[in-house]
Design a protein around this nucleic acid. Structure first.
Length: 798
DNA sequence: AGCACGCCGACT
DNA sequence: GTCGGCGTGCTC
């Protein structure tokens, strides 16, 4: 028996199956999709079995045996193994990366080098004795000081080098206490009269003869501590066992079950359309304005799917930001829901994943990677806010959850619903062409009017001498809400901005020494940090250039707004939500629920408040600067701006109170802003499509971004130039190749970055040419320390 | 990627 | 003379 294994080494020459002999003792158990420990070269690595076969092309005498099976039940099923190969082709990634991303991080390998004793300890020099202590191994890291001595022993053979492979986190075990079923024994045991605790526990035991408890529960109920339990156990009154358990991440205690709401006519039409296609592979684009009740359609469709005995995946951009979505799912489906989001620990994610694998849950709500939920009988996949860029992973494997969703829907013959108030141009174009079926919700579910949006020309404000961040109109509106005890959301479009330190004398802005980017000020730690390479340093007291002490924190960020706000409305209670205030676990939820309970008048935040905020008392939304995303050098700048403005505006007036929105901008005539005002998606779509057609970007063209990095500027620009020439010669003349040019952030971590862009409509040779390119890179450039990364269908080209 | 093998400079 | 620098070649 031979197993093909994809080993856990991400490198081009290794990116193919290696054959291993399956030892007799494993043969009955071995299956594709299991993780194995295998010898590879002179070390051991983890790998995934992809195929079992009888014969190998490889010289049978040189086949090595599988060292160990890591699983009893495969962690990946056949569908996932096939999906990994598809992802490898589609995203040009290593197969091992595709396999790893499907498995919870807790199961990924942790490698630790060790020295293992291979002789009696007294054969070793005295200096080494303390390192081994009671065990026969020592972690290499702990023995750095005696590396030379160890090496000598290794030459002698008295010490061996080994790699210990462990998964990161395992199954949580809890200790169970089983009380003996003999009341007599309990009564007759002798306990010293002054051992009060033991006597107390004895009494408890008598009341619960023969019963079992979780150790922690027993201690709580009997009012004793663990040593007391141990003492009685030693006397034979109880024994212990360990039981698998799930970690309980739920902050959502005691959720009341709720029943389905009535659908509006529009919702009903959309629901019916989906329902009649439940057993076909079909993609729906559910285009519903903000507040039109898309979630209710999701919930009822899922209910339908569950009734047919199938399972559903619900993707949300980042669930920790939308606790309300989670709550609604739990209200409707209770324990049948698993939740996967970035706020969970590795162990908690693993437990949720196991519930899915064991078919204990039927619905999973989660972020991007939840698309790999190992359901066997998938009946529906939903991507809410399908236009969100977080659905595409920005490092290898650079997959898009939407593409994976559609692939899985073909496997399972089930529909996909892409929901959005502001669909990506790609999706809407596909709907127009009939590739997806378009379902439209044009009215808000509770029939509230759309909020009234005012566009404020900040150039006018400047002309009239208002240099503050708040226009007169917005300031007035804020005061008005405060007087009416209604709530305000202020949105700072922070992209492109950050809190930096500027010298007021010479204009120097503190830069990262390794990257071409300014350092960001972190108030909590009083340090300057680089968001690209992690470099940090203390905040300087004098300017490093001119030594002036007029150097100060220039907070164009939320903190600065908060200060100005305090001057504007001193009595207002302000909650700030940004990366600084949400660093701790559960901080999002806390801030949001505090705001929901009316503990603050104003919520001030960045991108992260644009979504999911659904509170009835919010009647005013202010966008402080709409322009920051608009002028980014990216083909999606207008689309992003339109989406963001629509999303933020949608936070106002979601209940009975009407909403109002103020959008401050220096370019009030831009179509992304004027059309977002009244949520005129289709005109925006038409106009943006015309722009894309003219400039040759998606959805008219497919795009591939190829990036090179090297520590030497001339080398990398040279490679990029050669590569671009190569592509120009190999690809068809209709394909447009842009560049090479320096990336927007031209240096990160002391490495220079160049990129080139391929824009094509039809390029049958593309895959082949890219493989050739990788070959050239592999055979020559990699040796000089260059890196190459290929991003198929990038979401941004900056 | 990691690790061993292999061939040339600065130290006990 | 040896320790150790990193070039290059392989991994079922």
């Amino acid at each position: 028996m031979i197993a093909e294994v994809i080993v856990d080494v991400a490198a081009h020459p290794i990116d193919r199956p290696f054959d291993y002999a399956v030892p007799e003792k494993f043969q009955a158990l071995t299956e594709p999709g299991m993780r194995v420990k295998v010898p590879f070269g002179n070390r051991k690595v983890l790998g995934f079995i992809t195929t079992i076969k009888d014969t190998s092309e490889f010289d049978p005498k040189r086949l090595k045996p599988i060292h160990e099976l890591m699983d009893v039940v495969p962690v990946l099923n056949g569908e996932m193994l096939e999906l990994a190969q598809w992802m490898k082709r589609q995203t040009v990634c290593f197969e091992i990366d595709a396999l790893q991303v499907m498995v919870p991080a807790a199961l990924r390998a942790k490698y630790e080098k060790r020295f293992v004793l291979n002789a009696a300890i007294d054969e070793l020099p005295k200096e080494l004795h303390p390192y081994f202590g009671t065990r026969d191994f020592v972690r290499a890291q702990e023995a750095e000081a005696v590396y030379g001595l160890m090496k000598k022993e290794m030459d002698k053979g008295t010490v061996l080098a080994d790699t210990n492979i462990q998964q990161k986190t395992g199954v949580k075990k809890i200790r169970m206490v089983h009380i003996t079923d003999s009341a007599e024994d309990i009564e007759n045991i002798s306990i010293r009269a002054n051992a009060k605790q033991q006597l107390k526990l004895q009494e408890f035991f008598l009341k619960h003869v023969g019963q079992s408890f979780e150790s922690s529960q027993l201690q709580k109920q009997a009012g004793v501590s663990l040593p007391t339990v141990n003492a009685l156990a030693e006397k034979g009154l109880a024994n212990f066992s360990s039981m698998e358990s799930y970690r309980d991440p739920s902050l959502l205690t005691a959720i009341e079950q709720k029943i389905a709401l009535d659908l509006t006519d529009e919702q009903q039409t959309a629901f019916d359309a989906i329902q009649s296609s439940l057993n076909t592979e079909k993609t729906f684009l559910l285009h519903g304005i903000t507040g039109s009740g898309k979630t209710e359609i999701y919930l009822q469709t899922i209910a339908q799917v569950l009734e047919e005995g199938k399972e559903a995946i619900m993707l949300v951009p980042e669930i920790s930001l939308t606790p309300q979505m989670t709550i609604r799912f739990k209200e409707r489906f209770g324990d049948l829901v698993a939740v996967l989001h970035s706020g969970l620990s590795a162990g908690e994610k693993y437990d949720e994943w196991r519930k899915i694998q064991r078919a204990e849950v039927k619905v999973v709500v989660g972020a991007r990677s939840a698309i790999f939920a190992p359901f066997q009988n998938l009946g529906l996949i939903i991507l809410d806010e399908e236009h969100e860029s977080s659905y595409k992973q920005d490092d290898s494997p650079r997959y898009h959850a939407r593409d994976v969703a559609i692939w899985r829907s073909q496997q399972h013959q089930c529909p996909v619903i892409l929901g959005s108030a502001t669909p990506s141009l790609e999706s809407y174009a596909r709907a127009q062409k009939g590739v997806y079926e378009l379902l439209a919700l044009k009215n808000r579910a509770k029939n509230q009017p759309l909020p009234e949006v005012h566009i404020v020309d900040m150039r006018e404000e400047l002309r009239t001498g208002n240099r503050s961040m708040f226009s007169v109109e917005l300031a007035e509106a804020i005061r008005e809400r405060l007087a009416r005890k209604e709530q305000v959301v202020l949105f700072l479009n922070k992209r492109g901005y950050s809190s930096f330190v500027l010298c007021r004398d010479c204009g120097t802005v503190l830069q990262c020494p390794n990257c071409d980017i300014s350092l960001t000020y972190h108030r909590a730690s009083e340090r300057m940090k680089c968001h690209y390479c992690g470099y940090d340093e203390p905040v300087p007291t004098t300017c490093p250039e001119c030594e002036s002490d007029h150097i100060r924190f220039f907070g164009t960020g939320t903190q600065k707004v908060e200060e100005e706000l305090a001057k504007l409305v001193p009595d207002a209670r302000v909650l700030r939500m940004d990366v600084d205030t949400t660093r701790n676990k559960g901080a999002h939820e806390k801030i949001l629920s505090a705001f929901g309970e009316g503990k603050a008048d104003i919520l001030l935040g960045t991108q992260m408040i644009a979504k999911g905020l659904d509170f009835p008392n919010i009647t005013l939304v202010g966008v402080l600067s709409a322009d920051t995303t608009l002028h980014l050098p990216d083909f999606r700048a207008a689309e992003k701006t339109y989406q963001l403005l629509t999303q933020v505006s949608g936070r106002a007036g979601r209940d009975v109170l009407p909403g109002e929105v103020y959008v401050q901008t220096y370019t009030p005539e831009h179509y992304a802003i004027t059309l977002a005002k009244d949520q005129l998606y289709e005109p925006f779509y038409e106009q943006e499509m015309a722009m894309r057609r003219a400039s040759g970007y998606p959805p008219y063209y497919y795009v591939v971004n190829i990036q090179f990095t090297h520590e030497d500027l001339m080398t990398v620009s040279g490679y990029a130039q050669q590569m671009t020439e190569y592509l120009r010669h190999r690809l068809s003349p209709k394909t447009i190749i842009i560049g090479p040019s320096a990336s927007l952030i031209a240096r990160v971590n002391n490495r220079y970055r160049y990129q080139c862009l391929i824009k094509y409509k039809n390029e049958p040779k593309l895959a082949e040419v890219l493989q050739q390119l990788i070959k050239i890179y592999r055979s020559d450039w990699i040796k000089t320390g260059a890196t190459l990364s290929i991003d198929m269908n990038p979401t941004t080209v900056m």
